[in-house]
């Protein structure tokens, strides 16, 4: 790629991200602001009886709840542009800090799951595609379709029951063991807590990749160039390796990057079941507890996360596929 094209690509994506974030913030801000949930009430919580009406007024005043909705939005937007997402009501610390900390935990989970489901799904897809119509294909297809109908959280519950309760291999719940300070948790301990949620998330992600890879491989195997390659005497594994893999891997990896949204959604559910202290758990708590600043922060963050995945998917085509690489960025 030429320098100019790179710049064009980056600028284009930056503009897209900016408009996207503006739209998402407007939409989510107004949705939340018309919510019947009273943030002051939620903030005060159980202390309700000990807080006088004047104090409530003060809190509302402090948060600027008396100003008009657009004005509130502008205030919030201005703060966000300065990197201030407000203070989480639940965690009593800056939203940005909460997101950063939580995201790191989720990231470990999602990276492991993403890689695992990608590799396993790709392999299953290739086996099914190469053996189309055989029992291996039927088994893999059936497995994937069933998986697609299985709620990730139920899968998580099954794992929890089998591996934690019944076999006792892994801890039940809680990212950090009770009574131990978060800083004192060893790496081994963390890893033990990571295994089951990551496994759940990986298995949940396999179906998509496998089915897509299978479709694509079948399409490629029926192509003219595979016919010609066969006529040239290539067969079996060499044939698939030489002509199949090249042609299916780009769309497969690209699709996998573009599925960051589902990955995030799966993480929300898996984290909930395993009490894993990640971003997914945080958004559930923020939603249930009316922690508006945190909720808005995570909504924006998740949009960026999905966007990054889509850009990676795009970039992959631009960098690897010669048809895109040599004919220039579109």
């Amino acid at each position: 790629m030429h320098y100019k094209q790179v710049m064009l690509f980056i600028t284009g994506k930056a503009v897209k991200l900016a408009t996207l974030l503006i739209a998402v913030s407007i939409l989510s801000f107004f949705l939340i602001s018309y919510s019947p949930i009273d943030p002051v009430q939620l903030y005060i919580g159980a202390d309700m009886t000990r807080v006088s009406p004047e104090q409530r007024e003060n809190i509302a005043e402090y948060w600027g709840l008396h100003e008009s909705k657009p004005q509130q939005f502008i205030n919030w937007g201005k703060a966000v542009l300065h990197g201030d997402f407000g203070t989480s009501l639940l965690y009593r610390s800056p939203v940005a800090d909460v997101i950063a900390e939580r995201f790191l935990a989720s990231l470990a989970l999602m990276v492991v799951a993403w890689l695992l489901s990608g590799v396993v799904g790709f392999l299953l897809g290739i086996i099914a595609g190469m053996r189309q119509g055989t029992w291996a294909d039927h088994v893999i297809k059936g497995f994937c379709f069933t998986l697609a109908s299985t709620p990730a959280f139920w899968l998580a519950l099954l794992f929890l029951m089998t591996f934690s309760v019944w076999l006792g291999w892994f801890p039940v719940g809680l990212g950090t063991p009770a009574g131990v300070l978060a800083e004192d948790v060893t790496w081994v301990e963390r890893l033990r807590h990571l295994v089951l949620p990551a496994l759940t998330l990986s298995i949940a992600g396999v179906a998509n990749v496998a089915l897509h890879t299978r479709e694509k491989l079948i399409e490629v195997l029926a192509s003219e160039y595979i016919r010609f390659a066969k006529a040239k005497g290539e067969h079996g594994f060499v044939l698939v390796w030489r002509h199949g893999l090249r042609n299916i891997s780009i769309p497969a990896v690209s699709l996998h990057f573009a599925s960051f949204g589902e990955l995030f959604g799966g993480a929300v559910l898996a984290e909930q079941v395993f009490s894993y202290p990640g971003l997914g758990q945080a958004i559930v708590q923020a939603g249930l507890g009316g922690d508006v600043p945190l909720l808005l922060g995570i909504v924006l963050f998740s949009a960026v996360f999905v966007f990054v995945g889509n850009v990676m998917a795009d970039l992959l085509y631009q960098l690897i596929d010669p048809r895109m690489r040599r004919s220039g960025v579109q």
């Binding site: 003219e224 160039y225 016919r227 010609f228 390659a229 006529a231 040239k232 290539e234 090249r246 596929d321």
Partner: peptide, 21 residues
């Protein structure tokens, strides 16, 4: 061992070339 060695095909469809090789 004959196909691709002693027996060859000349396809007419231009799609017979692997697009990524």
């Amino acid at each position: 061992h004959l196909c691709g060695d002693q027996i060859m095909l000349i396809p007419q469809s231009l799609n017979a070339l692997d697009p990524l090789m």
